[in-house]
Design a protein around this nucleic acid. Structure first.
Lengths: 253, 253
DNA sequence: CCATCTTTGTGCACGCGTTCACAAAGACAT
DNA sequence: ATGTCTTTGTGAACGCGTGCACAAAGATGG
């Protein structure tokens, strides 16, 4: 069974806190929208509310990238778009492979969001021989036997795993051995990878379970609030908005 | 433009830390696997490594639920499965609606993970009239005009949004007005919701961008490590595994 | 050129989450 | 019953992230 390293030498790359890195794409999205509306500058307050964060947090985040703002005015939208894009490495091309072309894999392949920001689906890979050669999103599915060659030929460093849980670790090992150093895992499995390889997971099942937990809490509060005064909260002083940075999800247990 | 509350009264429901809640599904998954293999008991060390976390963290997590372990022995697998299921609210049925039946929405509808743990797809909703009545995953797609009725009739409290970004806030508002208090958002939009409503987001684009950031860092490190001794790290002392709890993702900017 | 007003950049304090390390609890053998 | 050995449960320290609040910087108008 997958072991799962729990190192975590802080992950703090180059002085930019991980929490900040996770928010940069959010800022970038908001800035891109402003850019399309030809808005020249934006204040931390405006941008923060568009991104759904605290303005002080946003200013501190930007301070890690350097001082790109002008006091009394705000930030130059175009310049900031460029700086964040560069910081995130979006000015270059990132070939990506998707392994496991089921419902989800196909949906991701069809999903236009890849091309939008430097990501390009270089190949689709599946273990089912009957899938080989089939066109999905205009790309021919290749057999998993050729995985290593595909990775090598296309210079792929980012892999997306959308296989069933049982196959995920095996696929992951092969991807890593072939040179992939970043993995986005949609399979319901804890992946074990060597140091130097990044794994992010997206797990629908987990997300739903977290929501169910809070939902149950709300129901309990409402009940104890209506019937008995209850020992704790008077139902309604909750105000939860999913914790900004937490855990992602897709596929079941 | 969506405002996005940034309250966050800690979210700490009933004394169970949010970070712990986010890990419970992980433990549950590992425990279920053990249960299927008829393993009677498990130590914190074993279970922790199966779930990919620190054993002390796991023990502390369980301590919030109560003292269910036996010193010198470990935890009773079946009992723990039950306790966690109950704590997460998985012993009851959660009807869920999916709004936006495109590639992703259809993939989620087909995805077997729902039924596995108390979640049931109660309805599929789409704004495209030509979709209405079509069968997806054995369920007839209904028109968004009937959204309120559907929510009400089925007693739905959890909604999944897989619409394009532009429609997300509007759909969200209608869901909330109709009584939905938990939302899983796959659209690339910051949703604004009233207090008392939970939102979790899953964003593929953001996840990829975070990976790209680290990927770029690794490339830079390798270069400065090989060519010049570089001022910082000697390339290879990284050892990152996606930060345990962070941010999810799907659909582009 | 000076005054005023806006907005950034950040020092500081606080709280949550993680981890270590160990005492207490119980199983098990003798 | 007593001792030993395993494993839990948790006190305490530490570090990261957040948010407040303000000084510094610059724009703008007179």
């Amino acid at each position: 069974m997958a072991t799962g390293r729990n190192h975590r030498p802080a992950t703090r790359s180059r002085g930019i806190p991980e929490a900040t890195v996770a928010r940069l794409p959010l800022y970038l999205r908001a800035l891109t929208a402003l850019s399309e509306r030809s808005v020249p500058t934006v204040s931390s307050e405006e941008l923060a509310s568009a991104a759904g964060v605290n303005s002080a947090k946003l200013r501190k985040d930007f301070s890690y990238l350097g001082s790109y703002g002008t006091r009394g005015v705000g930030y130059d939208v175009e310049y900031l778009v460029y700086q964040i894009s560069r910081e995130l490495g979006l000015t270059q091309d990132w070939p990506v492979v998707i392994v496991g072309i089921g419902n989800l894999g196909a949906a991701l392949a069809n999903y236009g969001g890849f091309a939008s920001r430097g990501f390009r689906v270089a190949a689709l890979i599946d273990a089912d021989p009957s899938m080989t050669g089939k066109q999905v999103a205009g790309i021919a599915v290749q057999h998993v036997d050729d995985l290593e060659t595909i990775i090598d030929t296309n210079g792929v460093s980012i892999g997306v795993i959308t296989t069933p849980g049982g196959a995920a670790q095996q696929v992951c090992d092969r991807l890593v051995a072939a040179g992939v150093t970043s993995i986005l895992n949609f399979a319901p499995t804890v992946l074990s990878v060597p140091d130097g390889v990044d794994v992010r997971k997206v797990d629908l099942s987990i997300e739903l379970q977290i929501l169910a937990f809070h939902e149950q809490r709300k129901a309990a509060d409402a009940l104890s609030g209506a019937a008995a005064p209850g020992p704790a909260a008077p139902a309604g002083d909750r105000g939860e908005q999913g914790p900004d940075g937490d855990i992602p999800a897709v596929m079941p247990a």
